[in-house]
Nucleic acid binder design. Structure first.
Lengths: 219, 219
DNA sequence: TTAATTTCGTTGCGAAGGCAACATAACTCC
DNA sequence: GGAGTTATGTTGCCTTCGCAACGAAATTAA
């Protein structure tokens, strides 16, 4: 299987040896599916009981809201999960659709089989469960962190909440944020120009210093 | 152990027999701790590697933001998890503190031990892992759903997103929402009076009908 | 039953911030 | 290096919505 080495670096199979991974495929009832560029990998409203992992290629998840406007949620690349939160909560219908950006191959694993033990009760399986668990909680934390910003009433507090978090993550009051202005505005659910305006104000008031995506938090 | 029957109805031990639960305590390295009214169960900034489950009493989780303002996040009652998301992502520090509202007893379970298999490789353990998994994903979904509302730019879209979701959940265009106006405003991160204003507008325009927490979605 | 308290709707005011349009700088590509 | 393209900052206008204050209805207490 040509993708074994990719999988070794994936979250789900992290610290599991390629040979072991190969062996697990049977217990896990897993299979690979190939998609052409632009093809739909997951449809909106679909019910999901399998985790997808991108073996090669890229995809994006897109959500259409009540007004019909569509937004790109995330870029999915090699090693990314598809529908991990969905697979975890079985009765949920997918609020997004996922579309291949390149020719893309996806490995599917039935969630139930991750929990069922293979006859051998192998240590690898334990790692797998743990990794899956970590994956989900990581997703949950991403949601939590964004919520933390969004629930602030003023744009300034949204910005500060975001910057303080990144500062803590990087354990320094000087740091580079991983978003450009546009993405940052989207992340904070604000207008880009309004964001720029507020950032400038905050700099004038001495709260922060910044240039492009390098920031300094004062005090 | 007096609480065994409470646990039977908890999420984590759902569909596990009391006798089995008792037996699992050893594998799980679990213990019970009692707290007095007002006592701090979990401090802000604390690192967590154990799941707490409230056996009796009530507690609340409180978050203080960058300005120092504190907000009550959730009310925790019998069967509620404490720090399940935190325990799941080890290196995270608690963004909230949890305070007992009554005299409260909490069962602690080391997360690692949920994943480690006891010698017997028992079926119950499999259920436990699955339940824990479900608990986390449920929390993640709660966050996801709120995010879905918060990312809307207008108050009206926030409201609609919320109402449509509840409508879908209850599979009817006529439904009762579980929040009063005040809580709904908080949930949508809006001002209560602004929310009332917008709801009235939407009713005038024929989009919805409502009285108190009973709503009808038109079209 | 009446007072008190909670819950919800209404409205005027003003500020915050979205929107659009433009300016400028940086970067990419021939 | 010049032209196109992209990322960011600036600013005026105007809508949305937060805030405060009040009123009415409903619920609870006494």
């Amino acid at each position: 299987m040509q993708y074994l080495n990719n999988l070794k670096n994936s979250e789900l199979f992290y610290s599991i040896e390629p040979d072991d991974i190969k062996e697990m495929f049977y217990c896990l009832n897993s299979y690979i599916k190939e998609y052409n560029k632009d093809e739909i990998i997951l449809s909106e409203g679909e019910q999901v009981d399998k985790i997808g992992i991108i073996l090669s290629g890229r995809a994006r998840s897109i959500k259409s809201d009540i007004t019909g406007k569509t937004t790109i949620i995330t870029l999915l690349k090699q090693g990314s999960y598809i529908g991990i939160l969905l697979a975890a909560s079985k009765d949920r219908l997918s609020p997004v659709y996922v579309q291949a950006l390149d020719n893309t191959s996806v490995l599917y694993i039935t969630v139930d089989n991750v929990f069922k033990r293979c006859a051998k009760n192998c240590a690898r399986h334990e790692i797998l469960t743990r990794n899956l668990f970590d994956g989900i909680s990581q997703k949950a934390m991403i949601l939590h962190d964004r919520n933390d910003c969004l629930i602030k009433s003023s744009l300034r507090d949204k910005i500060l909440t975001y910057l303080i978090r990144i500062s803590k993550e990087q354990k320094s009051s000087e740091f580079i944020i991983p978003l450009d202005r546009d993405s940052m505005a989207q992340y904070l659910n604000a207008d880009r120009s309004a964001l720029s305006r507020e950032l400038s104000k905050m700099q004038k008031e001495g709260l922060i210093n910044f240039s492009k995506n390098f920031f300094i938090l004062n005090n």
